[in-house]
Design a binder for these strands. Structure first.
Lengths: 183, 183
DNA sequence: CCTAGTTGTAATTGACTGATAACAAGCTTG
DNA sequence: CAAGCTTGTTATCAGTCAATTACAACTAGG
């Protein structure tokens, strides 16, 4: 009935990938059903599988996508001010797209799967290297920077940080310190 | 055949809980099958369910168990030297029981489940408060301490840190900075 | 010793889920 | 316009998994 719009496989694949990022961010690798991704993307479940082969490959594509976007955000920020101290602002940007850090977190959690572990190690290492290259930070400075990023990531997953945060006194106390850092 | 040892429900429950911690650490909440926990504990799958009610309640018990152990480690370290700077040693202790941080990480990932989210928020807040109380650290100092803890947690999950670490140059560069910290 | 409670298992089930196969409809190019 | 390629669906399957039920074996107390 509905004049269903036909897209190219590439375009439809992009839509499915966006849906997958949202779904995986919410429920993780094992917890997300391909059927849910299909519903979000407005296509049938078998088509999702045919576009990406397996659920695992779709998750890997989602992981690569969010890691690419994270690197893009860092690159844009460094174009403004190539100093680590300026990257506090990036975290605001990252929190405005919560699915980025959440999918990455679910990637860490799913590292027990060899294919996912390989991908996660490669991409996280790439992010670390990028941070150092963009800002000239020392290993220790980059480590401190990424440490804070990981705390933000888990607080975001716990829903005590970000747009739809549940109010928790201890979390607000931690959040209030984010402006302050090692000079 | 085998002179099967009968234990009290309490004792058997403890054994199953230990098995659950190991299994959940390896595969996460959704990824771990109750059958696998039963095999590890040497009992039948239905008995695992009867002892804990549901898989979710078993995961919550595992989560509470590891958080209790983490707090215990912090308390012991603070009994020696009640200063944050002495807690670098704790992280070595935590890494020697990798299941602690891994189950906690899987708790973060499964926070989308309301019951698990509530538990995780409560226990993580409790750990933050404990760190402050034990060491007299400021919110910022405690935040920096927990940040490093979260980086160690995800690196442990990625298997680039700890006993069975996969060798990664970037990871070794990060690891080499762990001695250095803000004074 | 016998009965009532406890510890444990085998058998099963019903719901779910990723993946496959077969087919339908639309586009495009000669 | 017909043939062949692309996009997409419906129907279905084979396997998995948490949970229930019914039952068996052991143990303690009277």
């Amino acid at each position: 009935m509905t004049t269903r719009v036909r897209l190219t496989a590439k375009e439809r694949g992009d839509e499915v990938l966006r849906a997958a990022v949202q779904a995986f961010a919410a429920s993780g690798y094992e917890g997300t059903k391909t059927d849910e991704i299909a519903r979000l993307a407005g296509v049938s479940q078998p088509y999702v599988i045919r576009l990406f082969g397996t659920k695992q490959q779709l998750f890997l594509a989602a992981l690569r996508s969010v890691c690419g976007r994270i690197e893009e955000i860092f690159r844009e920020a460094a174009a403004d001010t190539p100093e680590l101290s300026a990257l506090g602002r990036n975290y605001e940007q990252l929190l405005s797209e919560p699915e980025l850090l959440l999918v990455l977190l679910h990637g860490f959690s799913a590292s027990g799967d060899p294919a996912i572990g390989d991908c996660v190690r490669e991409r996280f290492g790439s992010i670390y290297t990028l941070v150092r290259d963009l800002t000239g930070a020392s290993p220790q400075e980059a480590r401190e920077f990424l440490s804070v990023g990981m705390l933000i990531t888990v607080m975001s997953a716990m829903q005590v940080l970000g747009p739809d945060a549940i109010s928790m006194p201890w979390a607000e106390e931690i959040t209030s310190t984010f402006g302050q850092g090692a000079p």
